[in-house]
């Protein structure tokens, strides 16, 4: 008899990391395939999307990383009452080290003071783990591998912004998000998925913007105003003509996801989490099934 609150998920977390690093979610892959069809024959934009799609297939077959920058592993863990978050965190850290040994992850955790690479993807607050207790009877772990190139072009605005004539409303949000896409050019490995958060404080806003990246591209926003904003930003960001890799072309973004949170009367932050085309997310579910715990992936 194995109980959910006492199971060791280290090996399952290692498999979750392998899946995230070496495969792309189906919605991302089909969006890239559709983008390839839109680009002009013989263009650098089209050939780069072809290379990207070939690379995704090869990585899946060979079980090797899609991108050598396996990024910051960001774990969003939802768990029922009675499960130890300390135990889960320890298992996740062990799994990160094992995944590094197996070359699913590049050693990516660098001591900010000494400059020394820890060699196993563990360190102070590394990997990132957020815990959420919920009412469901099972554990759900969502993982996102967020690369450094696209993290460097992610940004935050404080509205109003006079240079962009951006006020404290959804029109202001639209203005700064388009500016962010322009500023990024190809440096964040376009075509991108944009996670946008409106409100919060600086810290919570950045976290909220990254949470948007876990949403599927075809999953509509339940808020009709935000859904309309997502639609418009998708269309207009692509009119900028930056294109895959910044080579110029029709596809600069593959999706835009917007969330909102309450803010102080004094503050109006807009955070833009720029995610490269390698939007590597994967999900693990562990649930009690009779005497055993069943683990599945999506």
């Amino acid at each position: 008899m194995t109980q959910l609150h006492e199971i060791d998920l280290t090996e399952a977390f290692t498999e979750l990391i392998r899946r995230a690093a070496t495969d792309l979610p189906a919605d991302m892959e089909s969006a890239l395939a559709a983008a390839k069809e839109r680009e002009e024959e013989g263009s650098a934009a089209k050939s780069s999307l072809e290379a990207i799609l070939t690379n995704v297939q090869m990585a899946r077959q060979k079980s090797t990383p899609i991108c050598q920058d396996t990024g910051t592993p960001i774990f969003e863990v939802s768990y029922p009452l009675g499960v130890s978050t300390r135990a889960l965190a320890a298992q996740i850290r062990r799994a990160a080290a094992i995944a590094t040994e197996r070359a699913y992850l590049r050693p990516n955790a660098v001591d900010s003071i000494s400059g020394k690479n820890s060699g196993d993807n563990t360190g102070i607050d590394f990997p990132t783990i957020h815990f959420h207790e919920w009412d469901e009877p099972y554990i759900q772990v969502d993982l996102l591998l967020k690369g450094g190139g696209c993290e460097n072009v992610s940004t935050q605005y404080k509205l109003p912004d006079s240079s962009l004539k951006a006020g404290r409303d959804l029109e202001g949000v639209r203005r700064v998000v388009l500016d962010a896409v322009h500023q990024a050019q190809g440096k964040g490995c376009a075509p991108a998925v944009l996670g946008v958060a409106i409100g919060g404080d600086r810290g919570s806003s950045y976290i909220k913007s990254k949470e948007q990246l876990f949403r599927k591209l075809d999953e509509p926003n339940p808020d009709p105003q935000l859904a309309a904003l997502e639609e418009r930003l998708y269309k207009e960001a692509n009119e900028l003509g930056i294109g895959p890799m910044g080579f110029g072309g029709k596809t600069s973004v593959l999706g835009v996801k917007v969330g909102a949170q309450h803010r102080l009367p004094a503050s109006y932050f807009v955070s833009v989490a720029y995610m490269c085309w390698a939007n590597r997310r994967a999900r693990l579910i562990a649930r009690q099934d009779g005497a055993e715990v069943e683990v599945s992936y999506a």
């Binding site: 070939t54 690379n55 990585a59 090797t64 899609i66 690369g147």
Partner: peptide, 10 residues
């Protein structure tokens, strides 16, 4: 091509 890491490693 940014991100085409397995392809380039070949």
């Amino acid at each position: 091509i940014g991100g085409a890491a397995t392809l380039i490693a070949q």
